[in-house]
């Protein structure tokens, strides 16, 4: 008997939306809820992933022989040891991505505390 009068009508409450991720209340009050932003969550997840990869000591580039793209010209140091090994390049790539993610997070949340080893990118003219 909806619509038969003013008594029975739809509640003004929106549907209860599933919340993606809940921090404890006290944390939410401290951070103003910014951690609930899904984009920041995605950045955070990727950052943790990269940190884990860099610290694991496992080979970073585990693509099989056939699936790799051509290597750049080798660069050697004074001792004739190759600098830009596959491992080295993979590490560089991840480190760069990590720096970019941290820059992004600072931009979105000025209160974000970057890790101690983070250096802001040099501004280029």
């Amino acid at each position: 008997d909806a619509g038969t009068g003013t008594r029975k009508r739809k509640s003004r409450w929106s549907e209860e939306e599933p919340k993606p991720f809940q921090l404890p209340d006290f944390m939410k009050d401290l951070t103003g809820g910014i951690e609930l932003d899904p984009e920041i969550q995605a950045l955070n997840i990727r950052l943790l992933e990269i940190n884990r990869m860099l610290q694991s000591g496992l080979p970073l580039d585990d693509r099989p022989e056939g699936a790799r793209s051509p290597s750049p010209e080798p660069i050697y140091d004074n001792m004739g040891i190759r600098i830009n090994t596959r491992e080295y390049r993979a590490r560089e790539r991840l480190t760069r991505e990590r720096q970019e993610i941290i820059s992004q997070m600072i931009k979105r949340n000025p209160a974000f505390k970057p890790p101690a080893d983070y250096r802001p990118p040099k501004l280029q003219k």
Binding site: R12, W13, S14, E16, E17, Q22, D25, G33
Partner: peptide
């Protein structure tokens, strides 16, 4: 209630 209603929309 606080947990459930916070962030919801009412009208």
């Amino acid at each position: 209630a606080r947990q459930g209603l916070n962030g919801r929309k009412f009208g």
